[in-house]
Simulated assay, not measured.
Amino acid sequence: MSADTMGHEPVHSARGAVAIITNSRGQLLLHLRDDFPHIAWPGHWSLLGGGVDGDETPHEAIVRELQEEAGLTATGVTELFDMRDGDGSGLTITFFAGTWDGDETQLPLTEGVELRFVDPEDLDELRIPPYIHQGIRRGLSR
């Protein structure tokens, strides 16, 4: 495989993990990414997650990323499917689902601009990477 357009290493072994976190009201926890030109999808709403480090499994990575980025421990985090971010990072991303009922404004956000619970019917009004939007729709239809 070739390197993606952002100058990263070849994507054959590069992986990431994101989590579709819902609350008891059926809302989704979204993360507004920083608006830095050197990151994939700057200034977009996305799911919490990040890259898989070393010999970590995608499940280990999502548990770590949720804790690192937002101090969040979601319950029942289960693997759903893989998708490729063909228009951004080029990574193969493993999608997970989990639940959390709490006040997102009280989470200690360490990356990005904001965390917000959003009603699924409002997704089309937000700037979301296409693969994330597609993954959320696919995950919610299960």
Rank of each mutant, 00 (worst) to 15 (best):
54 G>F: 10
3 A>W: 00
1 M>Y: 14
123 L>N: 03
128 I>V: 00
121 E>V: 02
24 S>G: 06
4 D>H: 09
93 I>C: 00
43 G>L: 08
22 T>Q: 11
71 G>W: 00
116 R>P: 06
122 D>K: 10
36 F>K: 05
59 H>R: 15
121 E>F: 00
48 L>P: 03
133 H>Q: 09
54 G>E: 15
118 V>Y: 04
13 S>R: 12
122 D>Q: 08
1 M>S: 12
39 I>R: 05
47 L>C: 05
78 T>F: 01
72 L>T: 11
22 T>K: 05
129 P>H: 04
133 H>S: 07
69 E>N: 11
132 I>S: 05
110 T>G: 04
142 R>Q: 15
121 E>L: 04
21 I>Q: 06
28 L>N: 10
134 Q>C: 03
32 L>S: 09
129 P>E: 02
84 R>W: 06
96 F>P: 10
131 Y>N: 03
5 T>L: 15
70 A>I: 11
7 G>M: 00
101 D>T: 07
134 Q>E: 15
117 F>D: 11
64 R>A: 02
82 D>P: 06
113 V>S: 15
54 G>L: 08
74 A>Y: 04
12 H>G: 11
53 D>W: 01
16 G>C: 06
121 E>P: 04
116 R>M: 09
78 T>D: 14
135 G>T: 01
116 R>L: 11
123 L>C: 04
23 N>G: 07
11 V>C: 10
58 P>Y: 05
35 D>L: 03
124 D>L: 03
97 A>G: 13
76 G>A: 04
110 T>P: 14
51 G>H: 03
6 M>D: 14
6 M>V: 10
14 A>G: 03
89 S>W: 15
42 P>N: 05
96 F>E: 14
108 P>T: 14
61 A>R: 03
23 N>K: 10
11 V>S: 15
60 E>N: 06
53 D>H: 11
94 T>Y: 12
91 L>D: 15
4 D>C: 01
117 F>G: 01
33 R>G: 11
134 Q>P: 05
79 E>Y: 07
2 S>L: 09
123 L>E: 08
100 W>H: 11
110 T>M: 15
69 E>I: 14
120 P>G: 01
47 L>Y: 12
69 E>D: 12
42 P>C: 14
47 L>R: 08
52 V>G: 00
88 G>R: 13
92 T>D: 12
